[in-house]
Design a protein around this nucleic acid. Structure first.
Lengths: 144, 144
DNA sequence: ACAATAAAAGACAATAATATCTTTTATTGT
DNA sequence: ACAATAAAAGATATTATTGTCTTTTATTGT
């Protein structure tokens, strides 16, 4: 479904968001430990997300990554996926055709529209605010 | 969504199915031309599908690939995807966790269930019979 | 100023996916 | 038997993804 880059990115952002209430900054080593991901690779992913203002970072002692609490409700999973995997998941053809649209559809085009729309809505409607709730933290896992 | 292997495989099988009525065999060069795919690579994909009895093949002059007309209604897209991409698309975790289930779910687990189910049903319910109808052939494209 | 810390940036390495090329095997018609 | 055809099988090449390592830059406290 998503690339490894995107998987790590989503898990990392969710973890950072879950620490946002205390306005706590988290280091890359803490993140990769919490989500069980390769540290250096995850650092690269977070670089991209920092450039795109999804997360913020501060260098040096007591530095790390964080998300301002007021941004939690405006950042959706759709943003993150868009940055890391592009919009292929929304617009790409299921059979890999370059041009596939209502005028020139592949045999599965209209069958995929519904599924795509579901996925899109889910990603757009799921915000970091929801994912950082206490209930969420208590019931769901970011690693095995 | 799917790998290139699976995209080419699906398009190839649909094309072969569309020739099944006349019980016509189609060569790999005809297939790769019809679906605009790399010939040698597509041949490899068809080898896999032949081993799994999705399509049949005959070597030598007047040989080629074909699907028996009576099988068109029993072969679903789900079969093909399963063979070429495995069942990761159904069972895999959206966030990439090794273990992700109702007992130990990732934060998106229950949100994905619905989407997965939709996709699964679509792939299971779409048969080669449907995709090889005259209406289908007339209205949909397998290449640009 | 200096040492310590931590992210940013760049270079490099390993692996997997995609793609091509060559040889072998099976089938057909002459 | 032989040549031609076409898929199967194996080997190799290319590219993209994933992962690691080293150096640089920014920040903090002493």
């Amino acid at each position: 479904m998503f690339s490894k880059t995107c998987e790590y990115g989503l898990r990392a952002v969710i973890f950072i968001a879950q620490q946002a209430k205390t306005n706590k900054k988290v280091s890359i080593s803490a993140i990769s430990e919490a989500i069980d991901s390769p540290q250096a690779f995850t650092a690269k992913v977070l670089q991209q997300l920092t450039k795109h203002k999804i997360v913020q970072s501060i260098k040096g002692p007591f530095g790390g990554f964080f998300i301002e609490e007021k941004n939690l409700k405006t950042i959706s999973l759709s943003h993150i996926v868009q940055v890391l995997d592009g919009d292929g998941i929304y617009t790409g053809c299921g059979l890999g055709l370059q041009q596939c649209n209502d005028k020139e559809p592949c045999p599965l085009h209209f069958k995929f529209i519904n599924i795509r729309e579901n996925l899109k809505k889910m990603l757009e409607n799921t915000t970091l605010l929801e994912l950082s709730s206490d209930k969420n933290i208590a019931n769901y896992y970011l690693k095995n």
